[in-house]
Design a protein around this nucleic acid. Structure first.
Lengths: 125, 125
DNA sequence: TTGCAATTACGAAATCATTCGTATATTTGA
DNA sequence: TCAAATATACGAATGATTTCGTAATTGCAA
């Protein structure tokens, strides 16, 4: 019952998250746009069929052109990946990951304030 | 020129980081200890040879039993992985990742204070 | 209507990661 | 000394992922 999308599957999921339910062609064209050069049409088709077999996406086959929908939420994937990352390379310490993230990419004052607020909230518990 | 260790390679790197330069046998035994049951000796050997070919580790062959050393720092791998994660599933926002990390795993008051200090420092710039 | 374009299904090649067996060489200790 | 233990090298099986070609089907437009 361990659902772990591959790299390519994750890329497709992201299209479905941002664009909503989509056809193979729509996904394929979005991928072509993002990368310089995208995969062939049938490659994307095959991947999405596999994802359907795995239960990662559902599809509506009432029309000839099938429409696919993500069955995993972006939130759940984020959670899973962050959790794994903390446990594998940050010694189980969320704090170390936070430090790394803040040092890697500069955040605006407004964003920093958001984080401060969250910390204050957590502190009260 | 893109250095991206595989899952198994990362596991070996972690041993080299924590134990320092090591032989194949030492790494293999450490892996056996960590997981319930480790890979066979030649499996670890092969992986470390591959890592050497890729330039991920160096090795000292002056004695029969070769001694391997990590050529990538833990810091650089953490940085690379966090950066990639931010860009692929957090819309390029370090803040979103930080929020997710803080919500995923509870941190102690002391740790929260460390983060607060870091934020204050960043704020001054 | 009929043929062209788009779509799905399917098989299989290509690639990559992981695993291990076997051959060979070297060291050690009984 | 010389057999057993230990090491490296290497090839190859296995399994997963990604890629695409081809065939069959459907819908559309001239």
């Amino acid at each position: 019952m361990d659902i772990k999308p591959t790299e390519s599957e994750l890329e497709i999921l992201q299209v479905l998250w941002s664009k909503g339910a989509s056809t193979v062609r729509e996904v394929n064209e979005q991928l072509a746009q993002q990368r310089g050069t995208g995969p062939g049409y049938t490659t994307t088709l095959k991947l999405m069929q596999i994802m359907h077999d795995k239960g990662i996406v559902s599809r509506d086959t009432t029309t000839r052109t099938h429409v696919y929908t993500a069955l995993l939420s972006e939130e759940s994937i984020r959670e899973g990946m962050v959790d794994k990352m903390i446990n594998t390379i940050f010694n189980g310490s969320a704090t170390e990951l936070v430090m790394q993230a803040l040092n890697t990419k500069r955040s605006s004052a407004k964003e920093l304030q958001l984080i401060r607020d969250l910390i204050n909230q957590l502190d009260k518990k």
